[in-house]
Design a protein around this nucleic acid. Sequence first.
DNA 1: CTCCGATCCTGATGGC
DNA 2: TGCCATCAGGATCGGA
Length: 272
Amino acid sequence: MPELPEVEHVKRQLEQLLRLPARVSKVHFFRADLRFPIPKDLARKFQNSEVLSIERRAKYLLFRTSQGAFLSHLGMSGSWRPAEPNEPLRLHDHVEVLFASGLRLLFNDPRRFGLVDWVEPHGKHDRLDHLGPEPLAIDFSGETLFKSLRRRKAAIKVSIMDQRIVVGVGNIYASEALFRAGLRPTRAAGRLTRQDCDRLVHEIKEILKQAIDSGGSTIRTYRGTDGGPGQFQSLLAVYERDGDRCVRCQKGVIRTKTIGGRSTYWCPKCQS
DNA sequence: CTCCGATCCTGATGGC
DNA sequence: TGCCATCAGGATCGGA
């Protein structure tokens, strides 16, 4: 159930494992579909190519080769891990990638909300071309957020989780960034002031950077490629902390309710 | 266009 | 001990 920091952490761990550039020798799929059907020619395209770099775009991982890129999304429950050559498959292992170096990578995804696909060299892809700005890039600013929110009636919480507005912010970091910015998650997005947007953008960038530095958050199932959990969950101020006293104002009690179909947390005293 | 709810899937948890 | 309902770091789709 990874958001940007967790995917970024996996990306960095994969870079260490692969020792780029890395030649792909064999690819196996153990079923025909994950979230979507796996293209018939995907194994053929990735096999015998050389991975030159690993990139993250939004919550997607891209294994870039000179002929295009292998695309991987972890969905809610996906994970990549290295395995010994003779190690038996586990339940919900769906993809195997073998490298000339001897490295064997397995993709495991119990809920199968993840996906794999191929991106042609020009980089255009149905699942990538509607994506908004990277939150840590300079083109995501208070000014650009303010503009993209204009006339939006949806709750601000829903809007910052909308991948067309800004990518990578999921259910945990949306609540946390709004808490830090002092904004109620139910506020209509179009009613945020320019100053609100400046603060919110600042806090989104800060919390994502801090979470990356801590290897992400493990609430339930997220694991890095080494099977290790993230370390940021202990620093979460509101997520799943309903009933607790607010760590900032020490007066409010953290509340929760469903907004846009997802559990949302905030302090009623210091968020408005 | 925007918005909202249903939907895909397995597993963990809590109430009765 | 079942059994059943609910919920989970995501994203797409259809209909209003």
